[in-house]
Amino acid sequence: MPHLTTYVGLADHSERTLAESFRSVADGHAHVADVFHTCRMLAEWSEANRAALAPIVERYGEADVEEPERLHAAGLARTRDGEVGLLRDLQDLHVLASLVQTTWTVVGQGAQGLRDKELLAVAEHANEQTSRQLTWLNTRMKSAAPQALIVAP
């Protein structure tokens, strides 16, 4: 199961990147009240997924095989300005959350194969939470898009 270990590590790492990116967007668009508060809450959801995974990471240990090339995605270190900038930042978050979700899907499949009930439960719950993050991002982009694309200065 060497590569499952790699993917458990990827889940942990990509959730961390997503959490940090949610916080960056919250701070970068702090004057947009719902974005500020929701992104901070969604960052905590990612942290909670990591906390649930922590004992399993411990159990699986470090991967002893070489990681695939370009395994990790970079987070959003800097946010953009304005309404179009917000839209673009939300798109970036959506890309990162999609990576998180497919990672959990893959990890869940591995857990099925291994009959690791603990990991399966963590992966399934995390997958649901990521769906909720993606749903919010999609909803928020849809409502922001017309004004940002057509009217914003």
Partner: peptide, 20 residues
């Protein structure tokens, strides 16, 4: 009908930015 209607707080934010 492409998205939920714009709520009051958002309308005032658009007015603040001048896009309304």
């Amino acid at each position: 009908h492409w998205a939920p209607p714009t709520h009051a707080m958002q309308i005032f934010s658009y007015a603040e930015a001048g896009s309304i």
